[in-house]
Amino acid sequence: MSKRDYYEALGVSRDASERDIKKAYKRLAMKYHPDRNQGDKALEEKFKEAQEAYEVLTDPQKRAAYDQYGHAGVDPNRGGGHGAGHADFGDIFGDVFGDIFGGGRRQQSRARQGADLRYNLELSLEEAVRGKNVEIRIPTLVGCDECDGSGAKKGSSPTTCPTCHGQGQVQMRQGFFAVQQTCPTCSGRGKIISDPCRKCHGQGRVEKSKTLSVKVPAGVDTGDRIRLSGEGEAGELGGPAGDLYVQVHIKEHPIFVRDGNNLYCEVPISFTRAALGGEVHVPTLEGKVKLKISPETQTGRMFRLRGKGVKSVRNGAVGDLMCKVVVETPVNLNSKQKELLEELDKSMGTGDEAAKYRPKEKGFFDGVKKFFDDLTG
């Protein structure tokens, strides 16, 4: 079976640059690599074809020979002198895929950083606004003090893995191409512990709960995170520890609702206070303050108390307290009170006369009348 044209195999033009060839090969190899398509022989052949084309077209001498003589110019089994010799496809694999599959043969074994941890911290609104120091207790993995994190019994030390020679990876050849894999002997560590520590059983880490003091800055809100560097899990083989992220959650407050730096609350007032105006006391995080109610205030009106909100943890800006007035209808009236209300209602008259006292009511019913007139008209 004749071979496909190398340029066609990579999907590039005959005047493609070396950079374009490498990009095309990288894309195809990612798609057809055997590790991603195990057992699919057809895709494996496509990978081999792309790899062979790449090896030829990225070598200036081989590419020149191929452009002049075709496949015969780069066939090492032909005696015409145009062949470019045997290719080490392991080197090609390492060069192109080193950053994708772990660094190829050049990757050295290294200590592994420990995992990051998360702790959910629940605070009251007052605690979040003012800030505080809290102590938390977390279960984690810490470096073994018996072996100083090496995993080897005291007095001994890990030895270099004889399979990968400390590289942490081995190269598996299949025909004329090679694949980098994690060393099965040392699991990628590059070292072997023949005499493990009794306390940590060769892991270099042990489970332990530790108590930490966390400084919560004033103004934090739900969703904010406090990072404690190096307080996560201890690393493997003496590697650096991960970080601890304290996730803040603010508990629901019985009076205030927080939105960014602003606070919101509802203030119930009597209908007489709403009609005549006056002053009411409203709560803030610093204590009670007086709020002046304008005459003829309607329910739902919002009053702003500037600077009575939350101070931002980021830029120091202070929010406002937004007070929503809710007019409360009186209940449990006695007969005398009911008579007074009936007298008040009669004094306002009916029809157009009453409209000046209750303009919203008149506007609503006028709208209802027009709606039904339009339906029947």
Results as ranks from 00 to 15, higher is better:
residue 239 G to W: 00
residue 242 G to P: 04
residue 296 E to H: 06
residue 261 N to F: 01
residue 267 V to M: 13
residue 255 I to P: 06
residue 298 Q to H: 11
residue 239 G to M: 01
residue 246 V to C: 08
residue 250 I to Q: 02
residue 258 R to S: 01
residue 254 P to F: 10
residue 238 G to E: 05
residue 297 T to Q: 00
residue 260 G to R: 05
residue 269 I to D: 01
residue 243 D to H: 13
residue 283 P to E: 12
residue 244 L to P: 05
residue 288 K to T: 13
residue 285 L to D: 09
residue 254 P to T: 11
residue 294 S to W: 03
residue 297 T to K: 02
residue 271 F to L: 11
residue 251 K to A: 12
residue 281 H to S: 07
residue 284 T to M: 07
residue 277 G to I: 08
residue 251 K to C: 07
residue 261 N to G: 04
residue 287 G to C: 04
residue 289 V to I: 13
residue 238 G to L: 13
residue 253 H to A: 09
residue 275 A to E: 11
residue 271 F to D: 15
residue 245 Y to P: 03
residue 236 E to T: 09
residue 266 E to G: 03
residue 283 P to H: 06
residue 255 I to E: 05
residue 298 Q to A: 13
residue 272 T to W: 13
residue 247 Q to D: 12
residue 249 H to Y: 08
residue 246 V to P: 05
residue 260 G to Q: 05
residue 268 P to R: 00
residue 255 I to C: 04
residue 252 E to W: 00
residue 299 T to C: 02
residue 292 K to P: 02
residue 253 H to P: 11
residue 271 F to Q: 15
residue 253 H to D: 15
residue 240 P to D: 05
residue 251 K to S: 12
residue 267 V to I: 11
residue 253 H to M: 12
residue 269 I to K: 00
residue 282 V to M: 04
residue 268 P to I: 03
residue 273 R to A: 12
residue 276 L to P: 05
residue 286 E to W: 13
residue 276 L to N: 13
residue 288 K to L: 09
residue 274 A to S: 06
residue 280 V to L: 02
residue 287 G to D: 09
residue 252 E to L: 04
residue 249 H to M: 11
residue 241 A to N: 10
residue 280 V to I: 09
residue 255 I to H: 04
residue 273 R to H: 15
residue 242 G to T: 08
residue 265 C to T: 14
residue 254 P to R: 14
residue 257 V to Q: 08
residue 256 F to D: 01
residue 242 G to K: 06
residue 239 G to Q: 02
residue 300 G to L: 06
residue 273 R to L: 14
residue 251 K to N: 12
residue 241 A to S: 10
residue 281 H to V: 07
residue 242 G to H: 09
residue 251 K to F: 03
residue 270 S to K: 03
residue 259 D to Y: 05
residue 258 R to F: 02
residue 290 K to W: 06
residue 288 K to F: 15
residue 259 D to H: 08
residue 293 I to E: 00
residue 299 T to V: 07
residue 272 T to E: 15
residue 267 V to P: 01
residue 294 S to A: 08
residue 295 P to K: 08
residue 263 L to G: 01
residue 285 L to E: 12
residue 280 V to D: 01
residue 283 P to W: 06
residue 237 L to A: 11
residue 246 V to M: 03
residue 299 T to Q: 04
residue 242 G to C: 08
residue 285 L to T: 10
residue 258 R to W: 01
residue 236 E to P: 02
residue 254 P to W: 12
residue 264 Y to F: 15
